[in-house]
Design a protein around this nucleic acid. Structure first.
Lengths: 186, 186
DNA sequence: GTCTATAGCGGGATAGAC
DNA sequence: GTCTATCCCGCTATAGAC
């Protein structure tokens, strides 16, 4: 792997583990096995490298979700697949966790990819809920975009509950609860 | 207000705004209008002061929730009151945001109050859901503890969505979506 | 391109005067 | 109790050699 590549990958890992404020260039360099010079040759500095890392993580997350949500099955089943898809629950969401970072939220550049990812996810989920309404699987009274927000919130909040307790169980409980509310009567 | 008191309050504010890693003793002292000596006289160091601050925030949050959840109305109405209660959405949850902090999650001392608060909230919500089931307001097929986890997750995740987009709208949408799923047919 | 050296600044804590 | 002085270390960045 090329040096810039290793730098980006190391940054992605550290942003996931420790967030933006908690991630130092030094730690990135150690993990990437590179020297100071390499980093400042390929990137303008910490924010620039972080932006590259965040963009890649955002892209990857959309790709993963696109796969799961575009899979086979009824709308309910695809949402269930998304909610139950394998996750490193205790590590948290590599995108969502960035929203708790004041330096990320305070920078339009860094927040951009985060916002776009979550927004895209929300739209995609809303489409599926809408589809479910048309097929009579979900009640017509439901607002597709609201339900989409609820689904995403349940996931993002599930990480919080899990990390608070140190166990993935709470995440799973929240997901099961939502699915029981969403489940078609049939 | 006494000096230790001011130190704790300043720490609470900074932990909320910037998290644990992002909060320096220096910033706390400036905000509290105190010198280094005061802080190290009253507290053993940053973790000790943070613990005092987190404990107080946790206590306060439980008290607030106790008030809302113990209010008048049907179980559904009390859950709705909790979900819709006034919040500084864009500031995030002062307790939940700590779960994204590796230094907090990595310390049993610091994580303790966070875990207890969320756990207590979950139990309290579960009691209310159970009550609603007994009264026939919620379907008997629902698992009270799972629904409680879903409710909490929706709130915690709502903060994430809101902060990502820079607007409280997404929080509200998630809440409305959950309420529409929870609403008794009546 | 990558390395090391260096720099200025801030984090976190201690010492000791008042 | 509170203050200032001081310490060591790590963060972020720049300079310049190779």
């Amino acid at each position: 792997m090329s040096t810039p590549e290793r730098l980006i990958e190391s940054t992605r890992e550290l942003l996931w583990e420790r967030g933006y404020v908690g991630t130092s260039p030094k730690a990135i360099l150690e993990r990437a096995g590179a020297g100071q010079g390499s980093m400042y040759h390929h990137f303008k500095g910490k924010p620039d490298l972080a932006l590259a890392a965040i963009r890649r993580t955002a892209k990857e997350m959309c790709a993963t979700a696109r796969g799961v949500l575009g899979g086979p099955g009824t709308p309910y089943e695809r949402i269930e697949a998304y909610l139950r898809r394998e996750r490193d629950v205790l590590r948290g969401c590599p995108i969502g966790r960035l929203t708790m970072d004041p330096d990320v939220v305070g920078s339009d550049d860094l927040r951009g990819p985060v916002d776009e990812t979550i927004d895209w996810l929300r739209e995609r989920l809303a489409e599926i809920v809408e589809e479910g309404k048309e097929q009579g699987q979900f009640a017509p009274s439901l607002d597709a975009r609201e339900i989409a927000a609820t689904v995403l919130s349940t996931v993002q909040g599930g990480y919080v509950l899990a990390r608070a307790s140190g166990s993935p169980a709470a995440f799973d409980a929240g997901v099961r609860g939502l699915l029981s509310l969403l489940r078609p009567a049939s």
